[in-house]
Design a protein around this nucleic acid. Sequence first.
DNA 1: CGATCATATAACCCACGGGTTATGGGTTAA
DNA 2: TTAACCCATAACCCGTGGGTTATATGATCG
Lengths: 110, 110
Amino acid sequence: MTISPPNRDLIFRAFADPTRRALFERLCRDGALTVHALTEGAAISQPAVSKHLAVLKSAGLVHGRVQGRETRYHAEPMALAPLTDWLAHYSSFWDHKLDGLGDLLKRMDQ
Amino acid sequence: MTISPPNRDLIFRAFADPTRRALFERLCRDGALTVHALTEGAAISQPAVSKHLAVLKSAGLVHGRVQGRETRYHAEPMALAPLTDWLAHYSSFWDHKLDGLGDLLKRMDQ
DNA sequence: CGATCATATAACCCACGGGTTATGGGTTAA
DNA sequence: TTAACCCATAACCCGTGGGTTATATGATCG
């Protein structure tokens, strides 16, 4: 059995929780948001949100920038690389995905 | 906050555990294996392996086929689709991945 | 300066997950 | 048919993770 790099572990663990995935998705969509803004509509308390953000941060998936009394968090999509690499490695899936790839390349050419 | 399809939840939860990822990886590499074979070198007991396999199975990631007194499990790489879809949606990462794609297509043409 | 806001941390609770041993049911071998 | 084997399930233990409330710290507003 192979030992996975600690990074990958942290990322998988971070995404195991749906609330954390939702936070990450929201940060991907809406850009930089404060903890307060993220707490709105999250159905959990502010400390809970802060803890989730800490987990995402320790996995390198988000960054927090202090601005005065508030902290704006933003997503770090490049941190998904270990995930995509892992998937690329362990799925014959690509073969099928490649079917629609010609079209994709054509669209990129335009 | 969006509600994720239950499938995705199950897959992420299943992969949260490194032992389960290792089992899945091994089944991807080595094809169909018995529980006994998977237990060898897994550093955990056979019941533990069985439980992990049950989790992977409930996520659709592996299938078990009973053959006499043994059960051979095999990976179901297509079940990774929800993961790749999610990643494709939430990563600007693909743009970079596409760089090496021309070569890949050429190789497939041969 | 005093009050309020924004956030992180502490302290705590409880459910769940991953491990174990024990066991039962089904299958092959002797 | 008796014994050994393969596997799943049951029953249990315990650490951890996600939730809460309370609080400390720092920044802004009046």
